[in-house]
Amino acid sequence: MADTIEVNGKQLAVDEEGYLANLNDWEPEVANVMAKQDNLELTPDHWEIINFLREYYEEYQIAPAVRVLTKAVGKKLGPDKGNSKYLYTLFPYGPAKQACRYAGLPKPTGCV
């Protein structure tokens, strides 16, 4: 994994796992670039989770692990979306890890 990703002509620093080094570098295009690297195309459903994570992080200053994420999504978006099966269809590499990376957040606590 490169130490930078190119977004809109700018080089943004990322750590060895591909998470943004500086949370303030995030813009929606970051998620699109990262998704392309994973051969994913972001849909409105993906964005719903990415935006949810960004709001969650803003409020609690922590990236939620998958169990917490699932529960919080269920509370806000309903049981159809608040389950790991749904979240794994969107983010096959692990909903918490992959979605947090796209959202420009640090790696969730408790994720290996």
Rank of each mutant, 00 (worst) to 15 (best):
T43I: 01
V73Y: 03
T43V: 03
N32K: 15
A35V: 01
P28F: 10
K85V: 10
R101P: 05
L42C: 04
G94V: 02
Y19M: 07
D3S: 11
K71P: 00
E17D: 10
V66T: 08
M34V: 15
F52I: 13
Q61V: 00
A63K: 01
E41M: 09
A72K: 09
A2W: 03
P64F: 09
Y57D: 07
V7Y: 08
E27A: 14
A103S: 09
Y57P: 05
D45L: 13
P64R: 00
I5K: 11
E17N: 13
C100A: 14
S84N: 13
P64L: 09
G110V: 14
E17G: 03
T43E: 12
Y102L: 02
K10W: 08
E16K: 11
Y19P: 02
V112W: 15
V73M: 04
H46Q: 10
A99D: 05
I49M: 03
P95F: 10
Y93K: 15
E16T: 11
K97R: 12
H46I: 01
A21P: 00
A65H: 12
R67I: 12
A99M: 02
R67F: 12
E16L: 07
I50K: 03
G94C: 05
C111L: 09
V66L: 06
P92I: 04
D45C: 07
V33A: 11
K97I: 07
K76I: 07
Y102H: 06
T43R: 01
E55S: 14
G94P: 00
P95C: 06
M1H: 11
G94M: 02
L87W: 06
P44C: 10
Y86F: 15
